[in-house]
């Protein structure tokens, strides 16, 4: 028996990687590991002497759970380093109504989180909310512009046209894809024409996203998507994606419509 503990508390002589305690049903510590001794002052043999008062209430209330054999909870402990040290406690009861507890110190692992929180706090304190709100407004306007850059136009019950305007960017195709797929799905369209006549610059990421849209449209309609008015450079880029069977190039809307109606 340890000199420091005149009570019935006993030292558990195994090298455990985390502090370990065993309590009887009244909360008296009956067994402790070497690390438990290093972390906590065990001169008193009751658990309440090493648990913060508010956490002690938590321990009393949640230490037994009929549904789970092992209870897990965070408790503030009075450790040798600080009167409030956060531990994650794993607790289980045996047949003799003794509770075994493994205590995992949490403060260190939360430290990184706290540092992150502090830097966010600082950034928030420096945030100019006027600029922030203006940016939010601009983003909304931009999204609306994107929407308007790819209107959905039904030509007949089965045929629809999506003319694209301006530069082809990833964000724009994202916005257009959403509304376009919804409309094609709802209207059960079969022939989809996409007109590139009014397109300016084409970004790689934009084309990638456009290829995804093409493939989805192809699966939905079961037909080849007709691309109109595409510039040679863009056609070349699109050809890299091996889209035979998904799409075909057409010179102009006029030509597509003539072919369609003379069928």
């Amino acid at each position: 028996m340890n000199k420091q503990n005149p009570n019935k508390m006993q030292h558990f002589n195994e090298q455990l990687p985390l502090p370990f305690l065993k309590l009887d049903k009244d909360g008296t510590i009956i067994l402790y590991s070497t690390l438990a001794m290093e972390h906590f002052d065990l001169s008193e043999d009751h658990i309440k002497h090493i648990v913060d008062n508010e956490s002690y209430e938590k321990l009393l209330r949640y230490s037994s759970n009929d549904k789970a054999p092992v209870v897990r909870m965070e408790l503030n402990m009075k450790s040798r380093t600080s009167p409030v040290t956060l531990y994650e406690v794993y607790l289980t009861w045996d047949n003799e109504l003794h509770a075994s507890m493994i205590l995992l110190p949490k403060d260190q692992s939360n430290m990184q989180l706290i540092e992150k929180m502090m830097s966010l706090q600082k950034r928030l304190a420096e945030t100019d909310f006027e600029l922030y709100e203006q940016r939010e407004e601009l983003e909304q306007i931009l999204s609306r512009l994107h929407e308007l850059s790819g209107p959905f136009i039904p030509l007949t019950d089965k045929m629809c046209l999506i003319p694209l305007f301006g530069d082809v960017t990833e964000e724009k195709i994202n916005v257009i894809s959403h509304s376009c797929l919804q409309s094609v799905f709802a209207g059960e369209y079969e022939d989809v024409l996409i007109d590139f006549t009014a397109v300016g610059n084409v970004e790689d990421k934009g084309i990638e996203q456009f290829v995804r849209l093409l493939k989805t449209l192809h699966v939905m309609t079961g037909k080849i998507i007709k691309i109109i008015g595409i510039k040679p450079h863009t056609a070349k880029t699109l050809n890299k994606y091996a889209l035979e069977g998904f799409m075909e190039f057409n010179q102009s809307l006029k030509q597509v419509l003539q072919t369609h109606f003379t069928k």
Partner: peptide, 24 residues
């Protein structure tokens, strides 16, 4: 936290989110 539903890490996330709302 007192009723063992969330962890201190959860509380930190909630605090930062709340900070945003309070500041705004």
């Amino acid at each position: 936290w007192e009723t063992n539903e969330i962890s201190v890490a959860d509380e930190h996330l909630a605090t930062v989110t709340c900070d945003y709302v309070v500041s705004r």
